[in-house]
Amino acid sequence: MTLAPAFVSYEFADRKEFCLSFAASSSRRVMLVPPLFDEMNRMRKMLVDVMRSLHALNISSLLPDLPGTNESLIALERVTLADWKAAVQACAEQHDISHIASFRGGTLAVADIAAASHWLFSPIKGATLIRTMLRTRIASDRESGLTTSLAELTARAETGPLELAGNVISPDLFAQLSAADITTMPDQRIVRLESDSKPSDVQIAGSALWLRAEPDDDLAMSAAFAQDIAGWIGQ
C-alpha cells in the first residue's frame, strides 16, 4: 500500500495555508519548497516521491502550498515574492524547521532565511523564469494568430496583471521576480543534474522534469535526492 501524506497547515496573513506532511519517528525533518508556476505542477509528483523516500530513511518532510497556489484561498494576482518569502519563513518557524530543500525558482522564496541550512536544486534567477514564461506566452499567442513581443508583454506586465503560462501575475510580482537573483546562503549545498555544467557541490543523474510537456516522475532521481538530503542533514 502506498504511503499517503497527511495535511497540516501554517498560519500566514490571518489565514491558513496547507502543507503535505510525512511524519517519521526521528527528530530529523526538512521542508521542501517547490518550484514556481508551471514548473511546480510538472514536478509535484517528483517532490512527493522524494518525501516518501525521505520517510523510508526516517526523515520527516513538509511541502507547503505557497500563497496563491494549489489549495490557497488567495488569488495569485494578489501575491508578491515578498509574500512568498514571508510565508515560507512563517511555515519554517511554526513547524520548527532548520533544514530547507528548495527547487528551481523556489530557491528565490528562501533567500531571507539565513538561519536555516539550505539544500538548493538547480537554483535560477527570477529573470530567467520570467523570460521563459514570456516566450511561452508569445508562442501561445502566435498559435492563436496574435503577434506579441517581449517588449510589449513586459510593458503590459509593468502596469497591470498579465497572464503567463496560465498564471495571472501582478506588476509587483513581475518586478520582484525580474530583479530576484540567486542568493549565496551561509550554509548551503547546491545540487544539479549531471547534464548541468554550472558550479555545484554534487551532481545527480536524472531528468529535467520542468521541461516536460506534462507532469512526470523519475523515481531513481527522487530516491537519489532523498539520499543526498539525508546525508546532508546527518544524524
Rank of each mutant, 00 (worst) to 15 (best):
S122G: 12
I113K: 02
A13T: 06
M185R: 14
S222G: 07
C19K: 06
S9N: 13
E39S: 12
G234F: 07
E93I: 01
K125W: 14
M221C: 10
P199N: 07
I74H: 03
A127D: 11
D141I: 12
K198T: 14
G206L: 06
S72P: 05
N167I: 05
L120W: 05
T136R: 15
D218Y: 06
L134Q: 05
L36P: 00
T69E: 00
S27F: 08
N167Y: 14
G234R: 09
D141Y: 09
Q94N: 05
A24N: 06
L129D: 08
L32W: 04
D201R: 06
L20Q: 03
D83T: 06
I130F: 02
R44A: 10
E93A: 02
S144A: 11
L164K: 07
A24S: 15
I74W: 01
I182V: 14
A101C: 03
S207A: 13
G166R: 11
A90F: 04
R78G: 05
S26W: 00
D181W: 08
V110M: 04
P5A: 15
L73F: 15
N167M: 13
S27E: 15
P34N: 09
S9T: 12
A139T: 00
E163L: 14
L108T: 09
L146A: 08
L3A: 08
E39W: 15
Q94K: 01
V110R: 04
S195H: 04
A205C: 09
I130G: 03
R135H: 15
H118L: 04
V8Y: 05
A208P: 09
F7V: 14
E71R: 14
L57D: 04
D228F: 08
L162Q: 07
D38F: 06
S149G: 09
Q227L: 09
F18R: 15
V8F: 03
R142N: 10
P186Q: 08
S207T: 15
K125V: 14
M1I: 15
P199V: 10
L108G: 09
S102K: 05
V168F: 01
F37R: 05
R192S: 07
T147G: 08
G234V: 11
D65F: 02
G166I: 05
W84K: 07
G126P: 02
A13H: 14
L164V: 11
L129M: 12
A23Q: 09
E93V: 00
D112N: 14
M40A: 12
A157F: 02
R28S: 00
S60W: 00
A223H: 11
V79S: 03
A223K: 08
L36T: 00
G234H: 10
A6M: 15
T69K: 02
F18W: 10
D228G: 01
P199Y: 03
L177N: 01
D65A: 11
